[in-house]
Amino acid sequence: MKRAVSLTLTFIAGFLMMADFFVPHASFRGVVAEVRQWGLIVVAFTYVLGVANVAQVHGRRISRRESDWFNSIVLVGSMAGMAGLGIFHSHDSPDSPFIWLFNHVYDPLSSTMFALLAFFITSAAYRAFRARSVEAALLLGAAILVMLGQVPVGAAIWGGEDAFLGGFPGIKDWIMSVPNMAAKRAILMGAALGAISTGIRVILGIERAHLGGGG
């Protein structure tokens, strides 16, 4: 019964969203807009579940003194503190505690995480560009040409209007707009077909793995 209801609701919601692309009638659009509103309301309620989950997981860890339980105190304290400041304190001015904490604590922490990418890109590139096979050697060669074409020093070494094939910038442009673009479009087309196929599978109830089914 539960599965039949889930499949029916999935079909109705999927059909409505698909038909919305083809039916411009205001009454139909109104129905679809209403369904979307329901979705937003459900999403809003799930945030309560999210906060409850964080409190439950970390509350249990603190009460059982599991490993790194002190980190959980910091997390739950930060969550409660920011929520309290956001709810009970004005946050219109940039000097308000909420905005101050956001700008001076959260934002730098977030930027630090993002900045880690610079180091990770270096280590990943080192592994990817080790020329241990023909494919990896091709990748390395293409990457060197693209990098040289992208920076001014590349054009200074070999570039300018008279240069054969346009020099490093010309070769870079060709690599990016011909082989690279062709591969990218092929992946995009395949992904789009896969997405459509998955959508149809779920809407028609052929795929039931998310409901615990084997099919």
Partner: peptide, 19 residues
């Protein structure tokens, strides 16, 4: 799993002829 393969993985894992 690149693009399309990612979407096909669920069906491939099941080896169910319908999928």
């Amino acid at each position: 799993l690149i693009g399309e393969e990612f979407f096909a993985a669920g069906a491939y894992l099941s080896q169910d002829e319908m999928l």
